[in-house]
Deep mutational scan, measured.
Amino acid sequence: EPLWIRPDAPSRCTWQLGRPASESPHHHTAPAKSPKILPDILKKIGDTPMVRINKIGKKFGLKCELLAKCEFFNAGGSVKDRISLRMIEDAERDGTLKPGDTIIEPTSGNTGIGLALAAAVRGYRCIIVMPEKMSSEKVDVLRALGAEIVRTPTNARFDSPESHVGVAWRLKNEIPNSHILDQYRNASNPLAHYDTTADEILQQCDGKLDMLVASVGTGGTITGIARKLKEKCPGCRIIGVDPEGSILAEPEELNQTEQTTYEVEGIGYDFIPTVLDRTVVDKWFKSNDEEAFTFARMLIAQEGLLCGGSAGSTVAVAVKAAQELQEGQRCVVILPDSVRNYMTKFLSDRWMLQKGFLKEEDLTEKKPWWWHLRVQELGLSAPLTVLPTITCGHTIEILREKGFDQAPVVDEAGVILGMVTLGNMLSSLLAGKVQPSDQVGKVIYKQFKQIRLTDTLGRLSHILEMDHFALVVHEQIQYHSTGKSSQRQMVFGVVTAIDLLNFVAAQERDQK
């Protein structure tokens, strides 16, 4: 057995438009009618409502009807409940999964919650491996369901041993009777949507819809739904939504950006999952974080739909894509998950301010006199920076000697690579993860907040409520011999709460 199987392995699926269902090699399930009293909570997966979006479509000038398939009504709160249950049931049916076995899954959280929910009911041990950027709410729900959680670096490539995929496979090879159901490759993922989600949409719309818009992560949702719609409703256009920084969209030119990270969760990847059939997507749109969270908040405030950030991405694209539809036509959007997962993220004004998705003037509360002053007023001194090749031991000596707790790590040209902190280095040394002679590049981390000289002290204040420091950066445009230009970030300084307090105190003292 291989040590790991690539999540982007070539698909062996034989589905073709027009091929009889009787030739399918898979076990198919028909939607079942729910009894009045459910035998367990797993029976509350599927049969989610279709809700008309009344205000947002009109606000953006849509002539067509805009409908939302509300997947956050599933038992675990997301569309991923469907595939989690289906993968477990299919693994039980073919004898792969037996009582007492362990389920391991690399996930952005929602599939993990679905699997942990099913594992709690069915009696399996469950280990979820997820990147650090995923919300604390997801972690809390997983723990409450009895799952064990392993976190991995957000910026690790999918084929790196440190990625959530790599760590999951390492655990599988170490733990007896453990299984990775593997949402990236498992046919049960798109089949769950082909058999149930798509049929529900067709039934709820009486077979009449002209466009379907869905955000894409593993691709199982859009693949399964689109294949069924292509068979039953061939005139329906399928629109895929991919965040900026991901590479799922086609044509490839759409993916060209210097951005590699994004805040919206559960969609987009740096590889093409095996289950994603991009041939059934008629057109791709890219979405960005700001519009995703703005539209998610709009869905909550104006439509009462308590959905997550990827739902915002989907609707932001839908109001663009559906401009081509006329009166009497219908566009369906998939709202994948609930706001429950993001209470401390985009639902929080403070978080939105820190990330730059909300401006101070958007909030009406009274601010102190210094709130709208610029960061450049602080008069920061030149920063202490270190090269990635310097040793951890030497870096600790320098920081202690100069009285700093942290320093930016830059390359020879001064471009920011990340940050090192005294606390992080000492804990890594004590844990045996690094040696004093190791290069400081081994303990770089990139989960820090950046701020510009033109940003306000109010925004800085919000950042420092949650973080010990902020890195002050400025952009530099560099022209190359080819005539092309590129933008790079340079370090201007490091600012802490002490710097802000000293500035405010000094100004008030001078005024007296």
Rank of each mutant, 00 (worst) to 15 (best):
Val443Asp: 09
Ala301Ile: 14
Thr454Cys: 13
Leu363Trp: 10
Gly414Lys: 08
Arg340Gln: 07
Ile272Thr: 10
Ser348Pro: 09
Glu290Ser: 14
Asn341Tyr: 01
Pro243Met: 13
Lys484Pro: 13
Leu363Met: 12
Leu347Asn: 00
Leu248Ser: 04
Gln447Met: 12
Gln435His: 15
Asp289Arg: 00
Glu265Cys: 00
Thr496Ser: 15
Thr344Glu: 07
Pro408Ile: 04
Trp351Ile: 00
Thr389Phe: 11
Asp510Trp: 13
Ile238Asp: 00
Ile477Tyr: 08
Lys286Ser: 01
Gly245Arg: 06
Ala431Glu: 10
Gln487Thr: 14
Asp467Ile: 02
Ile477Cys: 08
Gly240His: 02
Lys442Ser: 07
Val415Pro: 02
Met466Trp: 13
Lys345Ser: 04
Ile239Tyr: 08
Met425Ser: 04
Phe503Cys: 05
Phe357Gln: 04
Gln487Ala: 13
Lys283Asn: 15
Leu399Tyr: 14
His474Arg: 04
Ala505Cys: 02
Arg278Asp: 00
Glu253Cys: 06
Leu380Ile: 10
Thr456Trp: 13
Trp371Glu: 09
Glu250Tyr: 14
Leu460Gln: 07
Thr454Asn: 14
Gly268Tyr: 01
Lys512Met: 11
Glu244His: 09
Glu401Ser: 10
Ser481Leu: 11
Val264Lys: 00
Asn341Gly: 03
Ile390Tyr: 10
Val473Cys: 08
Leu378Val: 06
Val434Ala: 12
Val420Leu: 15
Met466Phe: 15
Ala431Leu: 10
Asp282Arg: 13
Ala431Met: 09
Leu417Ala: 06
Leu500Val: 13
Trp351Ser: 00
Val333Phe: 08
Glu327Phe: 08
Leu363Cys: 13
Asn255Thr: 02
Asp349Gln: 08
Ser481Met: 13
Ala301Asn: 12
Gly268Leu: 00
Gln511Asn: 12
His468Met: 11
Asp282Ile: 07
Ile463Asn: 04
Gln450Pro: 03
Thr279Gln: 14
Glu303Lys: 09
Ile463Ser: 08
Lys320Thr: 13
Lys484Asn: 13
Leu429Thr: 03
Val281Asp: 04
Gln439Thr: 12
Gly414Pro: 02
Ile238Pro: 00
Leu460Asn: 05
Leu426Lys: 10
Asp270Thr: 05
Gln354Pro: 05
Ile463Phe: 14
Val472Ile: 02
Gln326Asn: 13
Ser313Tyr: 01
Ile396Val: 12
